[in-house]
């Protein structure tokens, strides 16, 4: 099956190509194809790493083993001929304490959405989210699936520190902080689930294609 027009492929240096399948806005069907092509492209001669982004895919290769035009053609044919995988990822249930001192933007978020606090929280916890991509920092999930009523543009001034475990909203995306770091997203609660633990057997909890459901562990004003 083919999804939309052929993707745009551009150079990212001599050893990488960026395949961009994005249309007007983020599309879940395109993302499933991104995961499938990422998986398939890992088997190509000379390919070193594939990095799913939001409706795009970065493919790193050794230019002394293969070359950009060859990899580009291979990616075009994979894009046209690969079946998007349907939800093969793991489902994670993440308990969230909404609001309080570790969810300071909750009331502002409800007001922005024109909903009651309860309804805002209920809607956030009712959805099933997809881990579209992991990036920026170790283990950070870009989550799609936010209820359109709950979108909230990012802060004009990013906070210099947002704590590990913060459950956050940025535009139409949801996320969870795997470590304390700067962020321009809004903080609506926190979880004790650790997304990144370098001591663990598998340091990064989530994988692209995984699903997430938030569970209400508590709500504070």
């Amino acid at each position: 099956m083919t999804i939309g027009p052929a993707p745009r492929i551009s150079l990212a240096g001599s050893g990488a190509l960026l395949l961009d399948g994005a249309q007007a806005s983020f599309d879940d069907a395109v993302q499933e194809l991104v995961w499938a092509v990422a998986e398939a492209a890992r088997g190509l001669d000379g390919v070193r790493e594939t990095v799913p982004g939001m409706n795009n895919l970065l493919v790193l290769f050794d230019p002394l083993v293969t070359d950009a035009s060859r990899v580009g053609e291979q990616l075009q044919s994979l894009w046209a001929g690969t079946d998007p995988q349907t939800a093969t990822g793991t489902l994670h249930r993440i308990p969230v304490h909404y609001g309080g001192s570790r969810g300071e933007d909750l009331a502002g978020w409800a007001a922005h959405c024109g909903l009651s606090l309860e309804e805002t929280v209920d809607r956030h916890a009712a959805a099933t989210y997809s881990v579209a991509a992991i990036g920026a920092m170790p283990g950070f999930p870009y989550l799609s699936g936010l209820d359109p009523r709950l979108t909230w543009p990012r802060r004009k001034n990013p906070r210099l520190k947002v704590a590990e475990g913060a459950v956050i909203i940025g535009g139409a995306q949801a996320g969870i902080m795997p470590m304390t770091a700067p962020s321009g997203w809004h903080i609506i609660g926190h979880t004790d689930v650790r997304l990144f633990d370098i001591e663990a057997q598998s340091p990064v909890l989530l994988r692209p294609g995984d699903k997430i459901q938030f569970e209400i562990a508590g709500v504070e004003q």
């Binding site: 990212a12 050893g15 994005a22 982004g53 409706n55 970065l58």
Partner: peptide
């Protein structure tokens, strides 16, 4: 742009 992977040198 939607978020995308980048390499050193970008």
């Amino acid at each position: 742009l939607l978020s995308h992977g980048i390499v050193p040198g970008t």
